[in-house]
Design a protein around this nucleic acid. Structure first.
Length: 227
DNA sequence: GCGACAG
DNA sequence: ATCTTGTCGC
């Protein structure tokens, strides 16, 4: 349709889509949204970038919290099978991200993912997928909305406005820098919206993207030249 | 039926 | 995500 023509991506196979949708509906029963019970000392950021047609480079950066000092940075390069389909991003990127995660010497208390958490059609954004697979708290920080409605938060850093989908407050639209487009923060797994927002804000120093995500994004570009 | 649509 | 130049503003 128009969408797939607009993004120049192959049209999805209806049968595969049905199967993946069912899988996410199953997973939904396992998602836990609650106040976290950990001491946040280590936080990780991750990001993926593409090389050519079907090759993906995933990066994980480990930071000390709340100093945000970088402790580790690892990456993994591998093939990717599915095309990008809105709502099914995790099936395309999570496998390679998990392989990169395994290379971390120390494991984080929480992972900040580039993309949505429960602010997704079936509450199963990539941050939620990763949280379930790793049984680890995750939060999603996306640059664009996927589902739901919201009003622009004030233009000053720290301003927040709710993202509502099906009568539910599933994410916060957070202004992380003055006069710059806001980001969408949502719980992935094993955390609640309030805590996720607070952590994202604490990680927002002088840029739009919170440090874990921004640095993962940065190193993805750096490592890309080494592949 | 008509748009909207993370990375 | 990625392809891409100059340009506006702190």
């Amino acid at each position: 349709m128009a969408y797939y023509r607009r993004f120049n991506t192959p049209p999805p196979d209806p049968a595969v889509l049905k199967k993946l949708t069912a899988q996410q509906q199953q997973m939904q029963q396992q998602v836990i949204i609650q106040k976290p019970d950990f001491d946040l000392k280590l936080i990780a950021g991750c990001d993926s970038s593409f090389i050519g047609e079907d090759s993906i480079l995933s990066v994980f950066v480990l930071l000390h919290y709340p100093s945000l000092e970088v402790l580790e940075k690892v990456w993994h390069h591998g093939p990717v099978e599915l095309p990008y389909i809105p709502g099914f991003l995790a099936f395309r990127e999570a496998p390679n991200l998990l392989l990169a995660y395994e290379k971390l010497q120390q494991k984080p208390d929480l992972i900040m993912v580039d993309g949505h958490g429960i602010s997704h059609p079936r509450k199963l954004g990539i941050a939620t997928h990763l949280g379930l697979h790793l049984k680890k708290p995750t939060i999603g920080v996306a640059k664009k909305v996927l589902v739901g409605k919201y009003t622009e938060p004030a233009s000053t850093k720290g301003a927040v406005s709710p993202l509502v989908y099906k009568e539910e407050h599933i994410a916060n639209v957070l202004r992380t820098k003055d006069n710059v487009k806001p980001v969408f923060v949502s719980p992935g797994h094993l955390i609640d919206l309030e805590s996720a927002t607070e952590i994202a804000m604490t990680c927002a120093t002088k840029y739009k993207l919170p440090e874990p995500t921004r640095l993962a994004d940065h190193y993805a570009a750096v490592f890309k030249s080494e592949v």
